[in-house]
Design a protein around this nucleic acid. Structure first.
Lengths: 345, 345
DNA sequence: TTGAAAGCGCTAACAG
DNA sequence: CTGTTAGCGCTTTCAA
């Protein structure tokens, strides 16, 4: 009668189906397919593998996770994927995990602090072995206690937590020498002959930008240059905000020779504004993200070894847990490119 | 004796713990916490919610998935995350799913066709409601049958599959009018006054680039311009390959006025090479990815509405399945920017 | 509206 | 090396 439309909702093949077809017990099939054990006779293993293939069997990871109590692999929580399309940490972690044969699951949290907490709750509900969190943190973040609580509970339950970028929380952390990077950049720019600076920075309470800015100011001071407070502009941590801030800055008519943006995305905004405005001012950034390598002029910045960051994080997560939370600091180094030509005679 | 180190490996709170604390049955707790039902007295619901909070309870999604037979949300399989850091589809899907309150899981497949198959197997093992796959496909891809098989099984088991970008497979698909885009671009460039062209294209059997190239050639032909076969260069589908290919092209000494790269990433490679070589030739791309908006000269390209693409895909996936696989074609439109100035007198 | 009980598909002792 | 037997934590009939 009815046209043979595919209403036939097959049941997915289960382990027991495979076992039956192979003529072994479910336990043996399990061992052959997913067990870390070696204990399966070769003949049986082959039979099971073949049965699985003809049945199109796929492990039900959910069931596996329930039985084992944990999900294999790492869950990476990233703040604001939609905005930050070129997040270098994502590809770093994916690559590093792939190399170790670990499945990675990426989940995106909104940019709001509360979103992060929610995303962590979600991630936790998947019971992954490793939970990695990346994205800046602010000192005035009211959700921190809640976040820490959720994470601590998670660790108490046997999960491993590694934070990237957010030092100061009681968990294993990989962070960068933001202050030193800013400091080095200041020295470098001073060495290049610049004297009049401005800093384009992000949210007032953001840890990352605060340290980078502080380091920069310190470096200038050591070079005998005082940075007036009104030369530090603060706004959103984005390219667009930086674009706008640069406009504000120039409109004030201050004779700036070089602008330090606390990250590359913002530096890009600065660069673009200057180009649009037909102004020629030196610009430096921080991060050295891949996505910017074709920008003109090429951007002077503080290079951060992203793959290494990801790798250290994973190594930490896979090793035994220490008595105390550890923090690995990654150093960057200044790379001078075209955006900051020497002005020394 | 022993320092009170945190060896206490707590068990994660379970539903039954919550139920006990709230003084109700597990069934009721379940209904209050995750059930779509309404049938729980308000007083009880409140008690359960509070108990869950004090216990720091998080649903065990794995167990939930086992019990329900499916995992809520969409799993997005992306080809080659590490390389393609600026994949516009990722952010589109994340955004669209977020808007609908659907959890998204992103998994990365290598660039090799076999990797895709493996990634699909993996994704399938999570039993998500919706499986979305994105990434180009080649006509000579030997793994297609296997891929189709895995996907069909998945659908037979009740899952929903949506392909983005890979028309011609028996699944619901969202694709772009690649041919038309290439065609329009050719007409546009011809209208701008260009006469001598070259095309920088990707893998020989790649569907996407093939269509874009074919459309472009057709558009030129209609404008009375024949494109000699040796003006179509073929290589990897990447910025770096395009960079190298442009070098090859110019070394041949052919008088090219405009280069059409089949995607923006490649166009970027072309642009950069030309800049490095100090040559001034018009360049056009395809995709209009966000990441390139600050490039100089700004890139003329075929704009594709990525968010709409993602949205259509999700709408398709959430609606009822049709008798036949449907394909939604998304049209792009040419955007002329600085990289292709008019040469008409 | 609520609870008891029977699974969901898999793994992990424990014998054999 | 292999099978048997319990669960893992949650949902979902089915009765009450």
């Amino acid at each position: 009668m009815s046209t043979m439309s595919e209403t036939t909702s097959t049941r997915a093949a289960r382990l027991s189906d495979v076992a039956r077809l192979a003529g072994v017990s479910a336990a043996t099939a399990s061992r052959a397919l997913n067990g870390s054990d070696r204990g399966v006779r070769e003949a049986n293993r082959a039979k099971v593998l073949e049965a699985a293939k003809t049945l199109g069997y796929t492990t039900n990871v959910a069931a596996q996770a329930v039985a084992r109590g944990r999900n294999r692999g790492v869950t990476l929580v990233v703040k604001g994927i939609p905005e930050d399309y070129a997040n270098p940490i994502i590809s770093g972690v994916v690559t590093a995990a792939q190399r170790r044969g670990l499945p990675v699951t990426i989940t995106s949290a909104g940019t709001d602090p509360a979103d992060l907490v929610e995303a962590v709750h979600n991630a936790r509900s998947h019971r992954p072995e490793i939970l990695m969190i990346t994205g800046g943190r602010a000192t005035d973040d009211a959700t921190i206690p809640e976040l820490v609580d959720a994470l601590q509970r998670y660790e108490a339950e046997g999960g491993r937590v590694v934070l990237i970028t957010q030092p100061g929380l009681p968990f294993d952390t990989v962070a960068y020498e933001n202050r030193k990077g800013g400091y080095d950049m200041a020295k470098t720019l001073a060495g290049l002959g610049y004297r009049n600076f401005a800093v384009i920075s992000g949210m007032k309470h953001g840890l990352t930008q605060r340290d980078r800015t502080a380091g920069f100011i310190e470096g200038l001071a050591e070079s005998g240059i005082q940075l007036p407070a009104d030369r530090v502009l603060i706004g959103e941590f984005t390219r667009d905000a930086a674009y706008a801030m640069t406009g504000d800055l120039l409109r004030r008519g201050i004779p700036v020779e070089a602008i330090f943006a606390v990250n590359d995305a913002m530096a890009l905004g600065v660069l673009t504004f200057l180009r649009d405005a037909g102004r020629s001012i030196a610009v430096a950034g921080f991060d050295d993200i891949q996505a910017l390598r074709d920008v003109t002029p090429s951007l002077s910045t503080v290079h951060l070894p992203w793959d290494q960051v990801a790798d250290e994080a994973l190594t930490m997560a896979m090793g035994p847990r220490g008595d105390e939370p550890r923090t690995i600091m990654i150093e960057g180094h200044v790379v001078v490119r075209e955006s900051t030509p020497s002005v020394v005679p």
